[in-house]
């Protein structure tokens, strides 16, 4: 198995949780009630923690790679120069020095927070996927990825409980909350198709027995989502078209702004310890 496959696959997993964690962190101090402010930052913290484990592993793979194999890994010139100059790459280099076209997160996680219903809908769709993904990834032939999946799965069990409970609470709350929840599910559903569309990295990782066949998760996903939506007395959302692109580096306009904000200090004051 090529270490480039493991690297790219690991980065894709990391990008998803970093961007999701970054989005949720923006709620800090602004939640509808203090307890939920805290619950949301907890989830964000878990995701940033998962991203760190994955980026650390990716950095290790790069640092151990023969120079010839890593001469053209990224579009971002700052990062690629560092690699070519034999600097030791860190988790922060990977998070802070790549530009949008190097990120491989799905479109779903980069969507705006919107109101509480939109935030819940995005987490509901993403966390359920993460749950199925990590459960399968525990069987990865790559023992580091398997271990990260096992640890993360415990956290995601809480995340799906949180998101599902809110879908039910809003769906079965007031007429207003029901309408808002229905609208948010409908608006975010078109980003769920991409989760199960295998890209080249996932194909290669699956063939090497380190990655998950995400297309095989779709049926269980659909059923589990539907069960909660029914319990919430809501309608299953529909989509005439599923948006794709993020997993191949073709993002919505949101990601550029997320990165501009997240990476600003590292860009304005490069090569410093913080």
């Amino acid at each position: 198995m090529s270490s480039i496959t493991t690297l790219k696959y690991t980065l894709q997993l990391a990008d998803n949780v970093l961007i999701m964690g970054q989005r949720l962190a923006a709620w800090c101090g602004k939640g509808p009630v203090l307890e939920q402010d805290i619950a949301l930052t907890n989830i964000s913290l878990d995701q940033i923690g998962q991203a760190r484990s994955l980026y650390q592993y990716a950095a290790l793979i790069i640092n151990n790679m023969p120079a010839a194999d890593k001469a053209h890994l990224f579009n971002a010139p700052l990062l690629q120069e560092k690699i070519n100059n034999q600097h030791t790459i860190t988790e922060d280099d990977l998070a802070y020095l790549r530009d949008a076209w190097d990120f491989r997160n799905c479109l779903l996680v980069e969507q705006e927070n919107g109101d509480w219903a939109y935030t819940v809908a995005r987490s509901f769709f993403f966390d359920r996927f993460q749950y199925l993904l990590y459960a399968a990834l525990q069987k990865s032939m790559d023992s580091t990825l398997a271990a990260i999946a096992e640890k993360s799965l415990k956290e995601v069990q809480y995340h799906i409980k949180w998101a599902s409970e809110w879908v039910i609470r809003l769906g079965d709350g007031t007429a207003i909350s029901k309408e808002k929840m229905q609208q948010a599910l409908q608006a975010r559903w078109e980003y769920t198709g991409e989760l199960f569309a295998m890209n080249a990295i996932e194909q290669a990782a699956m063939q090497a027995n380190i990655g998950v066949d995400v297309s095989s998760l779709q049926q269980a996903y659909q059923q589990q989502i539907e069960a909660i939506v029914n319990e919430a007395s809501l309608q299953m959302p529909t989509a005439a078209w599923m948006q794709t692109g993020g997993k191949n580096g073709v993002h919505t306009e949101h990601l550029g702004y997320i990165l501009a904000e997240m990476q600003y200090l590292q860009r304005a004051y490069p090569n410093m310890e913080w």
């Binding site: 970093l18 962190a25 805290i38 930052t41 907890n42 913290l45 922060d92 200090l265």
Partner: peptide, 18 residues
């Protein structure tokens, strides 16, 4: 939080504000 200069600083600051 969204502009913390490293992932470790981001996580620690988020935990602190929480």
């Amino acid at each position: 939080i969204t502009r913390a200069p490293s992932l470790r600083r981001k996580a620690v600051l988020l935990a602190k504000v929480q």
